[in-house]
Simulated assay, not measured.
Amino acid sequence: MRRPLAAIVLFAAIGGSAGSLAEQPPALSPAKTAAAANLVDIRTLVPDIAEDIKYAGSDNFVGAPVDGYRAPKCFLLRPVAEALARVERDLRTRHLRLKIWDCYRPARAVAHFVRWAHDAADQRTKAQHYPTLDKSRLLGDYIAPISGHSRGSTADLTLQRCASDDTHCEPLEMGTDFDYFGVRANTDVPGLTPRQRDNRALLRNAMEQGGFRNYPLEWWHYTFTPEPTPHTIYDVPVQ
C-alpha cells in the first residue's frame, strides 16, 4: 500500500532528509491538475527539446514505470520552464542541446522510490545503478522521503553536441549514466578524464547562467533559484 502523503510529510518533518526544507516542512498543494499548480509542459515552449523521461518507462533504477508518471513528459513551474527554455535557446547558438531525463516529480513517485529502497530483495538494477553500494545506503543522500523535484523547480538533464547543421546530436561523455548512485556521480569527483570534467563544467556553466544551481552529489541535477514555491510540493500526475 502506498504510504499516505501526509505521513511522508510528517516523516520528513521529524527526521527525513529534505535538504533546505528542514527548517520549514513543505505543505502539499491541493492542486489536482497541472494548470492549477502552474505546471507547464516544457514542449509548449520548446516543441522539439530532447527528452528521455526515464520514470515513465522501465529503464530506471526501480526497473518499472513509477507511480504518477502516466506519460513521458517534462512539467515545470512556468517561471522555471521559461528559464530552461532560455538555456536551450542559448545552447543552440553553439550547436549544443539539452536532453531531459526528469523534471517535476509527483509526491506519489517519491513514495514509490522509498518503498523500493526498503525492499532489500529487489536487486534487479544493482549492476547498473548502485554497483558499489549496499541498497540500504541509498536512503538519505540519494533517496529522500521528500524530493526537491516535487516542488516543480528541478530538472535532471545532460548536454548534447550537434552537427554543424544541427541534424544529429550526441550526448556528451559525463563519466556516469543518469541515476548512478555512487561518488563517481558527484559533480567535482576526482578521477574523471579531462573530457568528462570539461563536459560537466560546460553543462554547469550553461545552467548557472540560466539561474539554476547544481546538486553536488549528482552532476545531472539542477534547481532554479530562487524557487517559485520553495515550501510547497505537488502530487499532480504527469500526463
Score class of each variant (00 low, 15 high):
residue 4 P to C: 11
residue 5 L to R: 15
residue 19 G to K: 14
residue 21 L to K: 14
residue 25 P to W: 09
residue 28 L to F: 03
residue 30 P to A: 04
residue 33 T to V: 08
residue 34 A to E: 06
residue 34 A to L: 07
residue 39 L to E: 10
residue 40 V to L: 05
residue 41 D to K: 07
residue 55 Y to N: 09
residue 60 N to T: 00
residue 64 A to V: 09
residue 65 P to Q: 11
residue 72 P to F: 06
residue 79 P to S: 02
residue 81 A to Y: 10
residue 83 A to T: 07
residue 84 L to R: 05
residue 84 L to T: 12
residue 86 R to I: 07
residue 93 T to C: 13
residue 94 R to A: 13
residue 96 L to A: 12
residue 110 V to A: 12
residue 110 V to E: 13
residue 113 F to P: 11
residue 118 H to Q: 14
residue 121 A to L: 10
residue 126 K to S: 08
residue 127 A to W: 04
residue 135 K to C: 12
residue 139 L to C: 07
residue 142 Y to N: 09
residue 143 I to T: 07
residue 145 P to Q: 06
residue 152 G to D: 02
residue 155 A to G: 01
residue 158 T to D: 08
residue 167 T to Q: 13
residue 170 E to R: 14
residue 170 E to G: 02
residue 173 E to F: 08
residue 179 D to Y: 00
residue 180 Y to M: 05
residue 185 A to H: 03
residue 187 T to W: 12
residue 188 D to Y: 12
residue 189 V to C: 10
residue 192 L to H: 13
residue 193 T to H: 06
residue 198 D to K: 10
residue 201 A to Y: 05
residue 202 L to F: 05
residue 206 A to P: 14
residue 208 E to R: 15
residue 215 Y to I: 08
residue 219 W to K: 02
residue 223 T to M: 01
residue 232 T to M: 00
residue 233 I to P: 06
residue 233 I to H: 00
residue 236 V to K: 05
residue 238 V to N: 00
